[in-house]
Write a protein that binds this DNA or RNA. Structure first.
Lengths: 358, 358
DNA sequence: CTGAAAGCGCTTACAG
DNA sequence: CTGAAAGCGCTTACAG
């Protein structure tokens, strides 16, 4: 007769995990209650065909009766596995990333994984702290949208070289991790082609930080389309601005310093485009009539601004699902070649790209 | 001399948890490397003052050298504690909830907790599945923004009566859990007072599902303000609509079926208000000039619509922090009285509430 | 088909 | 101040 009381039952314990103080029901409780071994209960839980159908029924009944809750942490520890995936987002309050996160969680959940969330607010320091904490929970893999200014050395230091990582949206130099990004270059090229097709020849690229990889790629697409059409990119019409509405509006004047002004602008993103439209309007230039504007992202405001904004839809939720699937694939194929994927974007033509073309 | 190789080292194992196949470094590795016991290493990890300063230094050096990563799951199992909190959101793609989630994660992270994310897409079935999965990870507590149509019986069944739960935004009948919501009633009353102060007397309440608790509360605030001003609520000006732009726009006509029409509307939320403004415009009625409109939420579009939308700011990120703090407080005070908190909202006056008042 | 035993990585009285 | 031992809740060869 073995004593079932835990050795320490006399002293006070740290507050237990589950629900308001009750001790959790364990496989031992179930096994004892119906006189089978813990192994048998475990086999039932894991759906093993080894256990007799009638024994299984008795176990299952008792499981329900005692409202047993599986302790996946304990199981994972024993089995040396994990069913969690860490998702680290630079800015969850950005609808683009929020949608992305929703897609990730949806796809992960449907495969029985649980999402460990971390958000960094674009701070490399916070990112470091968040990653360290999350790694202590032994996630099977990690989906990381790096904070602006992340150093790959710092990131690999905390993650280890060989972790199962999927990078989203921003590259990190010198690591061999899977990478998923938007097709920034093609998107910007599509917007540029669209404007050219409308008859514009003097086109600016407006907004964004030139150093950021997404801005570089979008500028490259812009330049490519211009070149294909035999048009010249005027260096003074490559205008930088912080990616927010106010700064963008304030930079509007930079478009009109020459005798010859552009008649259209491909903007770094929707926010910048919205800012530019504000800036144009306040100068008496009506966007969509006197000047054509395109954005990037298709944020929800794009459809309802006036004029509505021609832009590139990026389908962030679908990107989230895709990211989850790529990571899950990596988990089961640790030795497959590194993936570098670029997701298609779709041109949405609206009113803002109307306008005069001379 | 004890054999250090795991008993099962011969057979193939399920793919191990950490980074690309390498076995994780454990306290045993550290202890063996420098010839101390695992207990000592553990004491160092937990910052116990018991261990000699020099021993501590040696242990810490070795920890770094071997890039040891603490296994919090194992520690939590042994200590019968948890440092995770589950966050279940009905709709993460709604910016309001995304901001809320960001706030929760921020506050939780700063207290050393990790966020287990679940999103339900407003489906009670998915919510049930998500909750079951998350509970297997023994979260210390749960922040739940219930899906529309959640049954409290189903929820308590999976969570247990006594779990540490904080309900956000939507009530669940017959449970004794902490609850945090916006001050819907006062918010709607503020909007109504604002319109009355501008001289309006014929005011409608527009949009939302009358059964939803938030709509009921907002209608109550509207009615209260009207009554305080000695104005009558016309039942035919209590107009329902699904909370999306299109449906709202389609319901515009319902305001103008009588000889006497309202001159202003308090809308259920911003989305509905934006829809109504669309509907008004297409009837040749200019919102903010011919008809006054207010919203609720202060979504980012509110500031940039034309006219810009007078609305109630709800500060979802701050609500998230607050929710996290309430839950953490509950964890340390399991027997404190149930909290029912109502968060202040703030009137933001913009152009849409201008307009004629007769 | 079922049970006894060992072990996942950690922590914590308890001795020394 | 340090070590040996037991145990958290689970799983898995291994015998029977």
């Amino acid at each position: 007769m073995k004593e079932k009381t835990p050795a320490t039952s006399k002293g006070p314990r740290p507050s237990p995990t589950r629900s308001g103080g009750r001790r959790a029901v364990t496989v031992t409780d179930i096994a004892n209650a119906i006189g089978v071994s813990r192994a048998t209960v475990s086999l039932v839980l894991r759906n093993s065909p080894l256990v007799h159908v009638e024994t299984r029924a008795r176990v299952e009944a008792e499981l329900r009766r005692q409202r047993y809750v599986y302790n996946r942490g304990a199981a994972n520890l024993r089995r040396q596995t994990s069913n969690s995936v860490a998702l680290v987002i630079n800015d969850l309050s950005n609808p683009f990333f929020a949608e992305f996160a929703a897609g990730v969680d949806e796809a992960l959940g449907s495969k029985g994984f649980v999402t460990l969330l971390g958000s960094t607010g674009e701070s490399p320091e916070r990112q470091h702290a968040v990653l360290s904490t999350l790694m202590e929970h032994t996630p099977a893999g990690l989906i990381l949208s790096p904070a602006e200014g992340s150093e790959s050395a710092q990131v690999t230091q905390v993650l280890g070289e060989h972790a199962n990582v999927l990078l989203f949206n921003r590259e990190l130099g010198g690591v061999e991790w899977d990478f998923l990004a938007l097709d920034n270059q093609r998107g910007a090229a599509m917007a540029t082609h669209h404007l050219i097709g409308l008859g514009h020849t003097r086109i600016a690229f407006f907004g964004g930080h030139a150093e950021s990889s997404s801005c570089r790629q979008r500028r490259a697409g812009f330049a490519q389309a211009m070149e294909e059409a035999g048009l010249t990119v005027e260096p003074q019409w490559l205008i930088e601005s912080a990616p927010n509405r106010l700064e963008a509006a304030a930079c509007t004047g930079a478009l009109f310093t020459q005798a010859q002004s552009p008649t259209a602008a491909v903007c770094y993103n929707d926010t910048v485009a919205l800012g530019l439209m504000l800036g144009l309007t306040s100068r008496g230039i009506q966007p969509g009539r006197d000047f054509a504007v395109t954005g990037f992202d298709d944020i929800s405001e794009a459809a309802v601004s006036s004029p509505s904004l021609t832009t590139l839809a990026v389908n962030p939720r679908e990107r989230g699902r895709q990211a989850a699937e790529l990571l899950l694939h990596r988990l089961s194929h640790p030795d497959a070649a590194v993936e570098r994927l670029t997701a298609p974007v779709e041109l949405r033509i609206r009113q803002s790209s109307g306008g005069t073309r001379r």
